[in-house]
Simulated assay, not measured.
Amino acid sequence: MEQGTRKSAIKTRSIFFLFSMFVGAAKAEMVSSCHGKYSAKIGEHGSMAVEQSGKVIGSIMLDHAIDGGTFSLDDSYLIVFGLPREANVRYAQVTHISLYSLRPRFRLIVKSRYGGGVYIASFDSGQKVTVVENQVGVNVINIKTKDTQSFEAAFVPQLKNATM
């Protein structure tokens, strides 16, 4: 009888372990604006749908997950970042970042790859630059010119009213 109880306990632990792995891997894959009017989420077949007040205003194919991101203060821009959908031997630890304009139409502005994890992305109050804090430092992307400046991890950008 003791052997049957031991097998049952092992089986229960195994099922619990597999279940916790499954639940731990699940993500919402969604970003909402501060006031909840806009949201971006992974749709069918790897596309990202952007909604305004529950109505889809645009959809675009996305080759990475949404692990984080933010809308600009005036909801004119969206930046999302995450791990790639498919593993690539050349870029095993890569994080993708995508910057979109929502007005006048939904379109991709900048797409980049980072060699390490991205912690947070934010906009300045004038929507002129976005700041990407990542594993190796800080990148400041000029939205209009698409130029990127890289700084050491200890750098603290002086931006007015950055959204995070």
Rank of each mutant, 00 (worst) to 15 (best):
M1C: 09
M1R: 10
Q3S: 13
T5I: 11
R6N: 09
R6S: 08
K7C: 08
K7G: 01
S8W: 06
S8L: 14
A9E: 13
I10G: 00
K11L: 15
T12F: 10
F19S: 14
F22L: 15
K27C: 11
E29L: 02
M30C: 14
M30F: 07
V31Y: 01
S32W: 05
S32C: 13
C34S: 14
G36K: 01
G36Q: 03
K37W: 10
K37F: 12
Y38M: 11
Y38S: 02
Y38W: 09
Y38G: 00
K41S: 11
K41A: 09
K41H: 13
I42G: 00
I42N: 00
I42E: 02
G43H: 08
H45D: 15
H45M: 15
H45F: 15
M48K: 04
M48S: 04
V50T: 04
S53A: 15
G54H: 03
G54Y: 03
G54P: 00
G54V: 03
S59F: 03
M61T: 12
L62F: 03
D63N: 12
A65M: 10
I66F: 04
G69N: 02
T70V: 13
T70P: 00
S72A: 06
S72V: 02
D74A: 06
D75V: 08
S76W: 01
Y77E: 08
Y77V: 06
L78D: 01
L78H: 03
V80S: 05
V80G: 01
F81T: 00
G82M: 04
P84Y: 05
R85F: 12
N88S: 15
N88A: 13
N88C: 14
N88G: 10
V89C: 08
R90L: 14
A92W: 08
T95I: 00
I97F: 04
I97N: 00
S98L: 02
L99Y: 05
Y100G: 00
S101R: 10
L102G: 02
P104L: 12
R105C: 11
R105H: 12
L108P: 04
I109H: 01
I109M: 10
V110P: 01
K111Y: 08
Y114I: 07
Y114D: 02
G116K: 07
G116C: 06
G116Q: 07
V118G: 01
Y119N: 10
I120C: 07
I120N: 06
A121E: 00
D124K: 07
S125L: 08
Q127Y: 05
T130K: 00
T130G: 00
V131R: 03
V132A: 06
E133A: 10
E133T: 09
N134Y: 15
V138W: 03
V140S: 07
I141L: 15
N142A: 09
I143S: 02
I143F: 05
I143P: 01
K144R: 13
K144P: 05
T145S: 15
T145D: 13
T148A: 12
Q149V: 14
S150C: 12
S150Y: 07
F151Y: 15
F151K: 02
E152N: 08
A153Q: 13
A154P: 03
A154E: 15
F155D: 03
P157S: 06
Q158G: 04
Q158W: 03
L159H: 04
L159I: 06
K160V: 14
N161G: 04
N161F: 10
N161T: 06
A162Q: 14
T163L: 05
M164Y: 10
